[in-house]
Design a protein around this nucleic acid. Structure first.
Lengths: 229, 229
DNA sequence: CCAAAAGTGTTTCACTTACACCCATGA
DNA sequence: TCATGGGTGTAAGTGAAACACTTTTGG
């Protein structure tokens, strides 16, 4: 199909919706745009895809360039191509979403970003481009996926308490959970490794620390096991 | 960001994975390519996105052009952009998947397609481009989604029997289901409308026909109802 | 009357839910 | 000693799974 090259081509970008968890709020990483369009407005980190790289590599590269963050859980979210979504012209964006432990990932602005900060994910509005919409889709996906895939652990430090884990689900799902039932259910899955270690520097009884057994989960998953709530 | 226009741009295509159900096999609609690359090979229907149309519109347009099918359930699946996936050069494809009742949608080849036919979805191989991979992702998505969203009905005629519905799930999920439990569960959801009509032209006891109550489902869904298996 | 699929209930078991008090620690 | 969250068990109810025979219809 040699005439294919005659087709006009869109620009293609990647945008990243990176979620973090701040005690009792779901956060999203935003950058302040250095240049037009939407100069000085808050936006999702992202940028143009280069030839010769995968879409996911592009997302990781842009994220690293603009916020300094690397080595994180990232998944493709959705592609946005409605006409008019970018005032510069025809632009299709492939969005990714990711989860990080805020404690281990402090953003540093660079490149096209004059600032890179965590903002409350459920209340930010009036972002650049159609990023409000992208964020909305990402929130929906996160709420859906967290219930049947153990991705929530990515939001916590490697060692965490059961209360932290419970708060995580309460924040994302926006409802309270029963403490005893929650612990019973999660421990029954036998995917948490009880560590010989306790919380430190808290002014109350220190909680036991756990870690998620990723390997075991992968084995069980292949055997048909289903993580649920 | 005026320098954005200096970036090299990829071609962007859409590809459609259209599923149908044939008594006891899951089918996928394929076209035979009229021209290079992959001339005469089986491929998913699809083509280049035009400026000024949405990605979904592009998918519907290409599907209509190449197979004559229109007015069907379509959802965005995933975007594929690995370098080298298209021998013509840098090309990103936004894939969609859809479900149709084969009885109501007979394909007719046209445009870039010299044939358009239904093939067994779980056994076709060696499709053009990376379409084997796209089909694999679509199958995975279908199996996942059919269990918690009532999209399976799109594969059936508007009026169907409970046995047809059960076979649908058995085919997609690749396991047998208990007849009594299946009927009990689905009828308990109260989303099927029992019609005053029966199956015709069968050489055994005629089954009662039902239809899916889309409106009611949408109301219940908003109220937090959750379709499950 | 035979073949083929339609249609129908009950019991068992596992899982979910609701619920309240004592414990350990640091300030 | 007080405030703060950590940690624990049981009973009741709900939903899932297992299971076999009778009915209807056309050939």
């Amino acid at each position: 199909m040699s005439h294919s090259y005659e087709y006009p081509r869109p620009s293609v970008t990647v945008d990243c919706v990176l979620f973090g968890l701040d005690a009792d709020r779901l956060q999203v990483l935003l950058i302040r745009r250095k240049s037009a369009p939407f100069k000085d407005r808050w936006a999702l980190p992202g940028g143009f895809v280069d030839e010769g790289e995968t879409l996911e590599d592009a997302a990781r590269r842009e994220l690293a360039e603009e916020t300094g963050l690397s080595d994180i859980f990232l998944e493709q979210l959705y592609s946005f191509g409605d006409p008019g979504r970018d005032p510069r012209g025809w632009t299709i964006s492939v969005a990714y979403y990711g989860l990080v432990s805020m404690r281990h990932h402090a953003p540093v602005a660079a490149s096209d970003a004059s600032e890179a900060v965590w903002k409350d994910a459920t209340s930010v509005r009036r972002l650049a481009f159609d990023h409000d919409k992208i964020l909305g889709v990402a929130l929906e996906r996160l709420r859906g996926k967290v219930r049947y895939r153990p991705i929530g652990f990515e939001l916590l430090p490697r060692k965490f308490t059961l209360s932290q884990l419970q708060r995580l689900y309460e924040v994302i799902l926006e409802r309270t959970l029963d403490k005893r039932n929650f612990r019973k259910k999660l421990l029954a899955m036998d995917l948490l490794v009880e560590l010989d270690e306790k919380q430190r520097d808290v002014s109350h009884r220190a909680a036991r620390l756990y870690r998620f057994d990723q390997r075991k989960y992968q084995r069980l998953e292949k055997a048909g096991f289903n993580f649920e709530l």
